[in-house]
Design a protein around this nucleic acid. Structure first.
Lengths: 190, 190
DNA sequence: AAATGACCAAATGAACAAATTAGTCATTAC
DNA sequence: GTAATGACTAATTTGTTCATTTGGTCATTT
């Protein structure tokens, strides 16, 4: 069986995006890394951006899979959603590709990258939305707009994990979990 | 009594920063606007950045004053802190200077501006910290770290007011208040 | 029929010149 | 004598040019 050229190209592109970022990766480089002629790339993808799109689509699949097995059916909703969020954000923190892409989004703002990051965030929110809706349906939590709730939870976690550390000592997972429980589930009122 | 040159300079600089931003404002322009020689500026300020610092210091004073009279001693803590936050963020949204500075921080990242924005945010957090500590002392809310709580509340509001609107219809004050109460005070758990 | 790389127009960026700018200080005005 | 000034300077920024690089095409090869 012949080598799967499309897969070779995707892997080469992913490696190069991870190493140098989207903008700094040239199609010649991808072709060379994949050991194919440059023209070959264009029989599988109609543009550089489409390669990124496809890589991110599978990235989102991976993230969802990770999140999936963070869920313990025997645990309460608040513990599950906490673990899911932590998984998402640790994924983002530990994979070279997401590190590079988020960095490029902040520092350069390459349009294709901005678009793709937006897609990742929306995917996370959509995933959480489902979990939240389930919890509402099962009567575990109060009625609320699942999309806004997911959005606010994600923003809070991102703030605590990425922004708080800018000027303060980082919080460990234990603390995060306690804060999350206090703010979102038990409430501050006595 | 002679005209207060220092005040003239501050007002000229504030007007120009508001109109064109910090970076795009030249000292020649400030001098011309203030009707003073450029050298005069340097008898009152040691640098362009010091002018910005002084303007922002009084801006923070104004914001605090605004926040102060958003507080109603007869209202509950959660209503007060909501009103305070809304005031801060409406101030930011309605004053040309803050609009320009936040925009310049995002789009150009001028160092002096980044520093000064950080100072504004820390001032808001410090102010909220005091209110939160009071509420804890009075037994109105549970024990919690006032700085982290203030930080998370501010980030949540900024997310809901500025980021949510990027891809969704904006929330009105009523909705914000309800969300805030639900997430932070009553908690989601049934 | 699939793969290729020479080729092209467009985009990028290196390099240099010109213009602008923050800050100084000798001179001026009172 | 002192407070105010604006011409001056060193340094940064901006505009311009042009050679190189880039994403994408397509005639040729395998």
């Amino acid at each position: 069986m012949a080598i799967d050229r499309k897969q070779l190209i995707l892997e080469a592109a992913k490696k190069s995006f991870s190493l140098f970022g989207y903008k700094a990766t040239t199609m010649d480089q991808v072709a060379k890394l994949a050991n194919v002629g440059k023209g070959t790339i264009y029989t599988f993808f109609k543009s550089k951006e489409e390669i990124l799109d496809e890589i991110v689509t599978s990235l989102i699949r991976d993230m969802k899979a990770e999140a999936e097995n963070a869920i313990d059916p025997n645990s309460r909703f608040d513990e599950n959603i906490h673990r899911v969020l932590i998984r998402f954000l640790e994924f983002r923190k530990s994979h070279q590709l997401t590190i590079k892409l988020f960095q490029e989004e902040r520092e350069i703002g390459t349009k294709a990258v901005v678009d793709v990051i937006q897609r990742v965030e929306q995917a996370i929110i959509d995933y959480m939305k489902g979990i939240i809706q389930d919890a509402i349906d099962r009567g575990e939590i109060k009625e609320c707009n699942p999309e806004i709730t997911a959005f606010v939870m994600l923003e809070t976690y991102v703030a605590l994990i990425f922004d708080w550390e800018q000027h303060h000592p980082p919080l460990d997972k234990e603390e995060m979990s306690d804060l999350f429980k206090l703010y979102f589930f038990e409430g501050l009122l006595k």
